[in-house]
Design a protein around this nucleic acid. Structure first.
Lengths: 142, 142
DNA sequence: GCTCTTCTTGAGAAAAATATCAATAAAGAT
DNA sequence: ATCTTTATTGATATTTTTCTCAAGAAGAGC
């Protein structure tokens, strides 16, 4: 079963529906990786999808665990398809991102799950820190 | 030296200035903990601070490590003063937050620092997961 | 096929957040 | 204290994001 078909099934099982608009947005994300809402809209507007629908759908897909929101250091959201085994570490000054493999966090997340009762294994995290070059910048010191 | 005086000094050392507007915003955060930009504005508007200045100042203080931005699960930002030894874990469905002590993450963050060169010890993290009650909800399954 | 229920969308209004630019004011030097 | 430099603010316009609500469409049952 294709990735999109599986998502359709997931949504139907929860009482939701897979619509042409949602398909178009998923395909845009599938094709391009990280996209802001405005970039998604650029890619799907030709199909008649409204701007409001783009925002609504991205939030909907995020709440359902199908796409992940990455909070850039500038406070803007970008979205990407789920299924990755990594998280992101973003510099709070310049916004540069690097990947952090799931296993780097596995032990800590397990402990947190045990202590809090939250489940953290199925989601995307955006960590914030200072990248090497911004550490030397005088404006970057904490 | 008071907390606010230290922040003034920090900013001056970087070529910035401590203004009445920035002081008012810092005091609002000091008094109330987590606040959204709109809530901050409610508390400082009486002093004549503009809405645009609130947004600008919060982003400025965040980039300088004086306040931390917490990204709620709804995509809205809230801000809080720095200096805490804990992070936040927020449910991606209902937004409920719990605290996560720094030591729970210390080992993982040390490893990530070594591998990436980023510095993570002076910052606030917002982790995202599923809270216990939303795990049972059919709409919450991943 | 038809009906019913309810999830979804589009259109437009509303609110939140950002950008521009001239005027203001803070910090340092004289 | 005064002057100079330039960071900072307010006012305004603009963009981005959210909300409301009636119309449209998907799925279930008959």
């Amino acid at each position: 079963m294709s990735c999109l078909a599986r998502h359709s099934q997931t949504l139907r099982a929860r009482g939701y529906r897979m619509t042409p608009q949602r398909l178009a947005i998923l395909e845009a994300l599938h094709h391009d990786g990280h996209l802001s809402p405005a970039q998604v809209y650029q890619r799907v507007r030709q199909t008649g999808v409204t701007e409001a629908t783009v925002y609504r759908t991205l939030e909907f897909l995020r709440a359902n665990g199908i796409v992940f929101a990455t909070y850039g250091c500038d406070g803007h959201l970008t979205y990407e398809l789920g299924g990755y085994d990594h998280h992101h570490l973003v510099c709070r000054i310049c916004g540069t991102q690097v990947q952090v493999k799931q296993e780097m966090l596995q032990d800590a997340l397990n402990r947190i799950e045990q202590q809090t009762g939250y489940r953290m294994t199925d989601g995307h995290l955006t960590l914030v820190g200072l990248c090497p070059s911004c550490q030397g910048n005088s404006q970057a010191q904490a």
